[in-house]
Design a protein around this nucleic acid. Structure first.
Length: 479
RNA sequence: GUCCCCAUCGUCUAGCCCGGUCCAGGACACCGGCCUUUCACGCCGGCAACACCGGUUCAAAUCCGGUUGGGGACGCCA
């Protein structure tokens, strides 16, 4: 209810804004993570602050180098460059040990030798008894020291209330009695997530923790650790989740969840950013945004509180928009991988640009564009059989011959001249342009759907056009 | 089971904090039409929502309470 007052807390401080994105390298960068990264990046940029990339690799068993690379690649593809890092938690072990010792020394943490099996049994029992499956505090006061197979737990206060003044959701109250003595350090010596984040955010001077909704319940535990350590709290902002069509947490069965999968499907990074930012954030009625503009306009107070459904239709529309908006030249390098993939012969960039220009309004993705580019690229494209049967008929012999004769004489093979040629032929034969256009289209592209005839011919050039017309003439003579 | 969050068109959302200007605005999708050498693009128009119940008030999408529904979290994962 007092949202604005919370939102402004950070702005009154003299501290420069520091945000971070802390993925765990156990897979690719997914849609939700990308949006979190984007929000953090935008917030930092907007406030002229710093954006840190931190790899949370304390789960040694599941972390992989391939994942790290995949995540970094995706961040770069989106244009979310970091100012600092990437840091790796596994290389910061002394920090965690230092802070852990402080907690141990002050009695805020203790050793525990409960086995995972025993813990699991007790959890199940609690659940069966209708109670919350939290740690029962067995080792709390046993005064255990370090030893093999022992973890360190946080001594969580069992009375009182912890308040999270969330930048997005407002104040949230938690009964400390609901929380339990979470593990800070595993038996292998690695810090756990909840402890490592706190230590890292403290030592990296993070001022704003912007992350997914699913972390709300971790926050009171982290706040308690900050308090036990006697360090000031950062500001927290919890962004709502992204759901699939069925309104459950987005997963692979809802379609692609990897950011790079969208790159492969022919989406532009700016379209991805544009779509992602609008999923949960708004600026009045505006739909189209560019990165630079977002830096200026982004703020947490316009981030909504409710979860949103990922909608690929809208992404397609936004992608189509950005494709139209880009210069053809800038699209060339992005499209090239897709052209290679299709095994098309190489063409000069200038040729590709001209072809792209005719397709920009017709393609929603680079995949669609590469597909419809075929007739521009392949020497002898095949005729669509239905189209050929319907349009390449013997009555076109005279019109085609006349066209070719007139074109042969053309000095400037450009759209305007071509249009004149067509008008003359059509007028001379007393037919409608429409009657001639489709057969020519089939002759030139193999199909009935394509950019405007004159632009196509302009791109293809005199030689190719005459060749294809000639080939069509042979075809309809043979029918 | 316990705790936490959320609730405006099918979807993303504006509006809600500071009640009247909202018989609720924009966008995607969908349906018509226009443009037109095909397909698109573009333009014009249409369909479609304040979850429910109660309270406060002259007045509630907006404030309060409850119900229902949905989501999330309860790990030596992050």
């Amino acid at each position: 209810m007092e949202r604005h007052c919370f939102v402004h807390q950070g702005e009154y401080s003299m501290d420069p804004v520091v945000t971070r994105f802390p993925p765990s390298p156990t897979g690719y960068l997914h849609i939700g993570g990308a949006r979190t990264a984007l929000f953090n990046w935008l917030f930092a940029r907007h406030h002229h602050g710093k954006f840190i990339l931190r790899i949370e690799d304390t789960d040694v068993a599941r972390s992989t180098d391939a994942s790290i690379k995949a995540i970094l690649d995706a961040m770069e593809w989106l244009g979310l460059y970091w100012d600092d890092g990437p840091y790796f938690q596994t290389k910061r072990l002394p920090f965690y040990q230092d802070y852990l010792q402080r907690l141990l020394d002050s009695g805020k943490a203790y050793y525990c030798n409960c086995t995972p099996e025993s813990l699991e049994r007790r959890r199940q029992a609690a659940l069966a008894a209708g109670k919350k499956p939290k740690y029962d505090g067995l080792c709390r006061d046993r005064g255990l020291g370090p030893g093999p197979d022992r973890v360190v737990r946080f001594r969580c206060p069992d009375v009182g209330t912890t308040v999270l003044n969330d930048l997005i959701k407002g104040p949230i109250f938690f009964d400390n009695a609901e929380l339990d003595d979470l593990v800070l350090q595993r038996s292998d010596g690695m810090p756990t997530y909840n402890f490592a984040v706190v230590v890292d955010d403290i030592t990296m001077n993070v001022t704003h923790v912007i992350r997914g909704d699913d972390h709300v319940n971790n926050t009171p535990r982290q706040i308690l650790i900050y308090q036990a350590l006697g360090t000031p709290l950062p500001q927290f902002g919890h962004v709502p989740m992204i759901l699939g069509e069925d309104r459950t947490r987005m997963s692979k069965r809802h379609g692609a969840t990897s950011v790079m999968a969208y790159k492969d499907m022919g989406f532009l990074p700016e379209a991805m950013v544009n779509y992602l930012v609008r999923l949960g954030w708004s600026y009045g009625d505006q739909e189209i945004f560019h990165l630079e503009e977002l830096v200026e306009k982004f703020s947490l107070e316009h981030v909504g509180k409710s979860a949103g459904v990922f909608n690929q239709e809208k992404l397609l529309w936004i992608n189509a928009h950005h494709i139209k908006e880009r210069s053809p030249e800038s699209l060339v390098p992005l499209l090239e991988p897709f052209l290679m993939e299709r095994g098309y012969p190489r063409k000069p960039a200038a040729y590709l640009s001209k072809a792209i220009r005719t397709l920009q309004a017709r393609a929603r993705t680079l995949v669609e564009m590469a597909d419809s580019m075929r007739f521009y690229m392949v020497e002898n494209m095949e005729y669509d059989s239905d189209a050929a049967k319907k349009f390449l008929v013997p009555t076109l012999r005279a019109p085609f011959q006349r066209l070719m004769e007139s074109m042969e004489r053309l000095e400037n093979f450009d759209e305007a001249s071509l249009e004149n040629v067509f008008s003359e032929v059509v007028a001379g034969l007393g037919m409608k342009l429409g009657k001639l256009a489709q057969p020519v289209r089939v002759a030139l592209t193999g199909g009935t759907v394509s950019p405007g005839l004159f632009e196509i011919m302009d791109v293809l050039g005199k030689q190719t056009v005459l060749k294809r017309l000639g080939r069509a003439l042979e075809y309809l003579n043979a029918v």
